[in-house]
Deep mutational scan, measured.
Amino acid sequence: LVRYRTISKIPQITLNFVDLKGDPFLASPTSDREIIAPKIKERTHNVTEKVTQVLSLGADVLPEYKLQAPRIHRWTILHYSPFKAVWDWLILLLVIYTAVFTPYSAAFLLKETEEGPPATECGYACQPLAVVDLIVDIMFIVDILINFRTTYVNANEEVVSHPGRIAVHYFKGWFLIDMVAAIPFDLLIFGSGSEELIGLLKTARLLRLVRVARKLDRYSEYGAAVLFLLMCTFALIAHWLACIWYAIGNMEQPHMDSRIGWLHNLGDQIGKPYNSSGLGGPSIKDKYVTALYFTFSSLTSVGFGNVSPNTNSEKIFSICVMLIGSLMYASIFGNVSAIIQRLYSGTARYHTQMLRVREFIRFHQIPNPLRQRLEEYFQHAWSYTNGIDMNAVLKGFPECLQADICLHLNRSLLQHCKPFRGATKGCLRALAMKFKTTHAPPGDTLVHAGDLLTALYFISRGSIEILRGDVVVAILGKNDIFGEPLNLYARPGKSNGDVRALTYCDLHKIHR
Rank of each mutant, 00 (worst) to 15 (best):
I260C: 03
A247S: 01
L90W: 05
C400H: 08
L229I: 11
W262K: 03
F294N: 01
I405R: 02
K215W: 04
A130V: 05
L266C: 03
S192C: 11
V159G: 01
D137F: 01
G123W: 15
A449P: 02
G303I: 01
T290P: 01
G443E: 01
S412C: 07
K434Q: 04
I141H: 04
P369F: 03
G305Q: 03
M390D: 05
Y329M: 08
V289T: 01
A238T: 04
W240N: 03
Y222T: 05
L110Q: 15
G123L: 05
I189K: 14
D88F: 01
D217F: 05
I183V: 10
L206A: 04
G191A: 05
L292G: 01
L90E: 01
L355R: 10
Y384Q: 13
L401I: 12
I340D: 01
R373F: 01
I237E: 01
E252Q: 07
I339H: 03
V393Y: 03
L92I: 05
L93H: 01
S161F: 10
K285I: 09
H416F: 12
S161G: 11
L343T: 12
V86L: 15
R165Y: 07
D88V: 01
G280V: 01
Q127D: 14
L134M: 08
K66Q: 15
V226W: 09
I198G: 09
P369R: 03
L343R: 14
F234T: 01
H364Y: 04
V210I: 13
T102P: 01
Y293N: 01
P282T: 01
G346M: 05
V307E: 01
Q269F: 01
F296S: 01
G334V: 04
I405V: 08
L200D: 01
L241N: 01
G271H: 05
T203H: 03
K66F: 12
F333D: 03
F360N: 01
F304Q: 03
L216S: 04
I183F: 09
G422L: 10
W382G: 02
D137G: 09
L355I: 07
P282F: 01
R429N: 01
K272T: 01
A440C: 13
G116Q: 15
E112G: 08
I244K: 01
H380A: 14
L78E: 09
V289M: 01
Y288D: 01
L229Y: 05
P118V: 07
F140V: 01
A213Q: 06
V142L: 10
V160L: 01
L206F: 01
T347M: 08
F397C: 05
C126M: 01
K418D: 15
G267K: 01
L176K: 04
P282I: 01
Q365W: 01
H439S: 06
V132A: 05
N310E: 03
L145F: 10
V100N: 01
A204C: 06
G191K: 13
H448I: 04
S298M: 14
T424V: 03
N310V: 04
R373C: 03
V131W: 02
F333M: 05
I96F: 01
F101E: 09
M231W: 14
Y344P: 03
L201Y: 01
C427K: 01
Q402C: 01
L109T: 07
A392S: 08
W382E: 01
A338W: 09
P118G: 12
L413P: 09
L134T: 03
K287M: 04
A107R: 01
E64L: 14
L134C: 05
M390P: 07
L67H: 04
